[in-house]
């Protein structure tokens, strides 16, 4: 009892505005933007992989394999310190170009999620029967139109539960930006924890918040899945 007796849960209440308005806002913004960017680029990569031009397919395949064989946290770290130098080299500037922690982590997550989303979208596109693009072509739609209006909307709808599940994983993964000392939700909690010496309380609370949000979201996805299954 002595250990619990020493806990001060009021520290959570006092830091709530900071944790949510700063930390959680950053986490959710990063999650939403990375999911959107990942979906856009992932779809392009999926189209490249399924393209009849073998070279495009191989480039996309290599990219996906490459990204998937690297630890995310390493890439976040590495990217943050490397991009300024790449920028300097590209623009010929005299000093490394500062990208900022947010832009840098966003680019990293988009690049990562694109690889994962591309596999999901690829499966989604392949799940559409070949008669669908054939019917679109027969009506005179071009390849791009057939993808845009016929194949991709169906692939996206069929894969929506999987895409959202992947986004929940992404939501948790964004906490890895702590390596850049960015105050995302976990980063903010960790800052308070260290400032006030309340590690147990703050990390317990952070875990609880991630758990609750992910659980509720998963539950929502399952309900959605059931609804989609009926429509089809």
């Amino acid at each position: 009892m002595t250990m619990l007796g020493n806990l001060d849960f009021d520290v959570i209440r006092r830091s709530l505005p900071y944790l949510f308005f700063e930390g959680m806002r950053f986490t959710l913004t990063l999650t939403a933007l990375a999911a959107f960017g990942g979906l856009v680029f992932g779809t392009l990569i999926a189209l490249m992989r399924l393209s009849s031009y073998k070279v495009l397919g191989r480039i996309a395949g290599f990219y996906v394999d490459f990204i998937r064989s690297l630890p995310l946290v390493l890439v976040i770290f590495w990217f943050y310190f490397l991009v300024p130098y790449i920028g300097q080299w590209l623009t010929g500037a005299s000093r490394p170009i500062s990208v900022g922690a947010f832009a840098s982590s966003l680019i990293t997550f988009v690049a990562f999620e694109a690889a994962y989303f591309s596999e999901i979208m690829r499966a989604g596109i392949q799940s559409i029967s070949r008669g669908q693009p054939a019917a679109a072509s027969a009506l005179g739609l071009t390849y791009a139109q057939s993808m845009r209006y016929v194949v991709l909307p169906q692939a996206f709808r069929n894969m929506l539960p999987v895409l959202l599940t992947q986004t929940i994983v992404l939501f948790q993964d964004t906490s890895l930006v702590y390596v850049l000392s960015i105050p995302d939700f976990l980063g903010a909690a960790s800052k308070v924890a260290q400032r006030d010496g309340r590690l147990v309380e703050m990390y317990l609370f952070a875990a609880l918040v991630y758990f609750v949000i992910s659980c509720v979201a998963s539950f929502g996805v399952r309900r959605l899945q059931a609804r989609i299954a009926i429509v089809r």
Partner: peptide, 10 residues
Amino acid sequence: VFQHFELFPH
């Protein structure tokens, strides 16, 4: 016109 109709289900 196709054997399996191929209407766009969405």
